[in-house]
Amino acid sequence: MPPYLNTMLSEEKITEFGIFNAAYVSQLKKKMTLNKHVSEIDNMAITAVLSTQILYDLYINKSIPALQENELVVLNITIIDESSGKRINHEHNT
């Protein structure tokens, strides 16, 4: 498992985010690791826990890098509609 996913399923992160019961998730992980075949529900449960942890990390913790000025989209057209009239800039970043 890639290190990031492993971290998201760690007892520390499960406890920190507070959505899931760390002991239950730990049991599920053990089952997934040791058993050759697990049930459909176990497969769905581990995917649900992992994806929710990632969702929390990306969207609530905002672990994604902040956008840099040079990453921002280049505007092909900017239309400023003011009471005094319409201003159109082509190929120009405001």
């Binding site: 505007l75 057209i77 509609d81």
Partner: peptide
């Protein structure tokens, strides 16, 4: 491919 914005009050 491209982007654009419209702004009013």
């Amino acid at each position: 491919d491209e982007s654009g914005i419209y702004l009013s009050k």
